[in-house]
């Protein structure tokens, strides 16, 4: 079977979703602070979904925000469990008052179908594969920028994006957050090497013609402890205003 056709057939089965296992967060936010952070994520994902929806000409279904603030050890364990074996990710570091790493993660077999949808043309598999990396980098750039835009809208923090990177590999490899943190430390001077915090939300696209979900994925944000402290400070300010 043609790899692309096989990918399309299998795509309906592929649902990347966040684990819901409970656990004690090691970074404590008050109930209201956590609510506020979820709402920012909700707004960020709304903006990101609007951008992605325009690109794929389909509605992007958004789940209720799931927020997990976890150590990278815990987050890696939760993320890897039950995921597809092969994944692709677009990784983008951001620097400034808030520094960290943003990841947009898709199932591996779904990425070529996404590229085909985005380019809106029937192309031979080899051409699609050639364009895959460049196209997904564009997608990642647009989606992650839109997502993080919500932080700058609501908080008095500024940051800039580094160039996006395309990654492909096993879930064990791509969801090993330690490797992303190593890259983050390399890219961001003064990064906090000791501990990171992970914020995650999932989404799926919806194909009205086939009435099935065609692609799902999630956004992961890795913040250093210093950035999380800034985030918490900003949350206090915003909540205090109301």
């Amino acid at each position: 079977m043609d790899a692309l056709v096989q990918g399309k057939t299998e795509m309906a089965k592929q649902q990347l979703c966040l684990p819901t296992e409970g656990g004690q967060s090691i970074f404590l936010l008050s109930e209201l602070e956590e609510d506020a952070l979820k709402e920012f994520f909700n707004m960020g994902l709304g903006m990101a979904a609007a951008s992605l929806s325009e690109m794929v000409h389909n509605e992007v279904l958004l789940s209720l925000p799931q927020l997990r603030i976890a150590s990278y050890e815990e987050a890696t364990r939760l993320l890897v469990s039950g995921q597809e074996e092969r994944l692709v990710a677009i990784r983008q570091n951001f620097t400034g008052e808030l520094s960290g790493t943003a990841l947009l993660i898709f199932p591996g077999a779904g990425s070529l179908e996404l590229v085909r949808t985005l380019l809106n043309e029937q192309m031979p598999l080899e051409v699609l594969m050639e364009l895959e990396q460049e196209t997904l980098l564009d997608v990642g750039n647009v989606v992650l920028n839109a997502f993080l835009e919500s932080f700058t809208q609501m908080m008095s923090v500024q940051f800039e994006f580094e160039a996006a990177e395309f990654l492909r590999g096993s879930s064990q490899f791509l969801l090993d957050l330690e490797s992303h943190l190593t890259a983050q430390r390399r890219a961001l001077s003064g990064g906090d090497a000791e501990r990171a915090f992970v914020l995650m939300m999932d989404f799926k696209t919806h194909d009205e013609e086939r009435m099935q979900h065609t692609l799902s994925g999630f956004v992961v944000l890795l913040f250093s402890q210093a950035s999380m402290e800034i985030l918490k400070r900003e949350l206090k300010v915003i909540i205090g205003a109301f």
Partner: peptide
């Protein structure tokens, strides 16, 4: 009143 600003919504 929603953050989901997609045209479809």
């Amino acid at each position: 009143v929603t953050a989901n600003i997609q045209e479809r919504m």
